[in-house]
Design a binder for these strands. Structure first.
Lengths: 339, 339
DNA sequence: CGGCAATGATAAACCGGTCTAGTGAACGGA
DNA sequence: TCCGTTCACTAGACCGGTTTATCATTGCCG
């Protein structure tokens, strides 16, 4: 038989299509005996729902959309995305929800994709990452009236849930640690300045610097690429009164920075301490290995997916979920200052 | 108005639903004047196709499926997947084809996903990666009668297209290069032995060793993780008559191996040359930087996607597309042997 | 025992497209 | 002038589910 349908089940079980639909979806309207019989027949002929037919009736598409708007070049290297993706996946697939993925150039394109996915009813919800300051996507998502979860920015997004980590506390812990080690000239090689998490980190550094009376704490912005990470490091190390410690917003940039220090004959950690604001094998493989702010990115993905399924189940119940704060894992790239 | 449908267009344009369908799909049956009028109305009311409704009529889902069956742990780090994904994406999105992505634990689960996606008509085609020796997925895909493209294994898969690189030639070029530098004891830290590309590389090494009369050329299998890459390196360097050159199947393992060499006081490249069978920023960031077999993985993804769209357009026309052979990029991790 | 509600089931409408059979008009050739 | 063909378009079935209106039974209560 070519692809069994509920009509086939109905015929074989001697009931109507409607009864089959009720039985298969676990809703009232059929007796337990009939339900069991229908389920048995469905099993027998190996019936599977036709997702399109379901979606047509206005029902769910059983899919969630994720659009990543970063240049492919940086994307390929960042371990962050792949791990986040794995986590999202794990949770979604346990709920039989598929992930629609798209990689685009910019936010304009991203918004366009959102519009078409929603109007084509391809997805039931959207996962937004890399939240920007005054992010235009929030308004679009609200206007489209589709459940959404923002990954990486704290709450207050109206009907949109959010899942985020306390970057501020993490940055403060790193700066305090460096201060205890005697560092006073601390620099920060950050990511794109329009990202909210970048701003939170830069601000935390400034605040800590003021409180701890550290001069010249400054943030240099980059596009997250290893090239710009290296360039920023070169600039920092070449100037007068160069920093004795640098905090990088990603492990990739930290590794690139470490390379520059080696090139320039600056000893790590004796002359320069390095902290990576993201941990992965990368940070552990280098020599010296990198002290890092570590968190379970996979788990972060799982939590984001859970927030998504929660808001899918009840769109009125959005939540603002703060996850584990990245913990400082000390390795070989940090040490007390010499004096 | 709540979500315009073709019925709305038909009403406003004063024609039938059928005419609208013909006009929107660029097929004969309407005059140019009417077609233009219909398109204008569709534009006006901002109509978008309802993908589910289309798919229901047996038409295309405009989506392609990709299932990755590797442990999340290794996945997160390999730059390879992210770059391949970007390439696939770029091509698919230019054709307005969405990508259905799923990450699973093993091939059994992968096959199960294929079955449900196909029977739920979620995808029009499948992209298979990490081809194994006597891969059970080939038979499943043929049985499901769904267009498919195999990434990474050469042809002869019946109705399935394939896109692959000449691992053998690449391995031979690396071994010959090492031989010219005077190396005779060459080892290979490979990936999972059940993968076809692993086997092709191992066999190429054996053949080259025989031809060039190199003793002890051997392959050590790993699971692609940095941990096993490091372990294999340790084993190789600890033994008597240790190799003077090691070829790693991925840049991640090469970096891990480099770390082990440093730990054990084996100088690279003076006492040990290292070649990575995969290139990325990772290989360039280390010190010394790694000589690598490089290819444009992004482009590889694009080509795979093109093979997919070709076979979607005409399922009878499968092709066996050999892509660019990885070229050896020499960097600092290889040098002539000392004697 | 009559009336009413709850239960189990059915038939048919519906979702938004695609596609086929059919219709009417215009046109061309003999 | 008449028939056959082509063209432009329409009406309606159809895809595979969900959902609603309806109906027959049964059970309960006063």
């Amino acid at each position: 038989m070519q692809r069994p349908t509920i009509a086939d089940i109905a015929r074989r079980a001697g009931v109507s299509k409607g009864a089959v639909s009720f039985a298969l979806n676990g809703r009232p309207g059929v007796s337990e005996a009939t339900r069991a019989r229908i389920l048995r027949v469905a099993e027998e002929i190996n019936w599977r729902p036709h997702s399109a037919a379901r979606a047509l009736g206005g029902a769910r598409a059983d899919a969630v959309g994720l659009v990543i708007a970063r240049p492919a070049r940086t994307l390929g290297v960042e371990p962050f995305f792949a791990r986040l993706l794995s986590g999202l996946q794990a949770e979604f697939s346990s709920q039989s929800i598929a992930l629609h993925l798209m990689i685009v150039e910019d936010t304009r394109a991203e918004i366009e994709i959102y519009r078409s996915w929603v109007s084509e009813r391809r997805v039931d919800g959207l996962v937004l990452i890399d939240l920007k300051v005054r992010d235009p996507r929030i308004a679009v998502v609200e206007q489209l009236k589709i459940p959404a979860v923002v990954v990486g920015g704290p709450g207050r997004h109206g009907r949109v849930s959010s899942v985020w980590a306390d970057d501020r506390a993490a940055m403060l812990s790193a700066v305090e640690y460096l201060a205890v080690l005697g560092h006073t000239r601390i620099a920060h090689v950050s990511g794109l300045p329009e990202f909210q998490h970048t701003q939170r980190r830069s601000r935390a550094l400034r605040d800590a610097a003021t409180r701890l009376k550290l001069p010249r704490a400054r943030s240099l912005h980059t596009d997250f690429s290893d090239a710009q990470g290296a360039a920023a490091t070169r600039k920092l190390l070449a100037g007068a009164g160069r920093p004795t410690a640098i905090i990088y917003d990603s492990d990739l940039m930290a590794v690139a920075g470490l390379g520059v220090a080696l090139e320039m004959g600056v000893a790590v950690p004796h002359e320069l301490s390095i902290i990576s604001f993201d941990d992965s094998v990368l940070a552990q493989l280098t020599h010296p290995s990198l002290t890092a702010l570590s968190r379970d990115t996979y788990r972060f993905g799982v939590q984001a997916a859970q927030a998504m399924t929660a808001v899918l189940a009840d769109p009125t119940k959005t939540k603002n979920h703060k996850t584990e704060t990245p913990r400082l894992i000390t390795r070989e790239s940090t040490s007390p200052t010499r004096n």
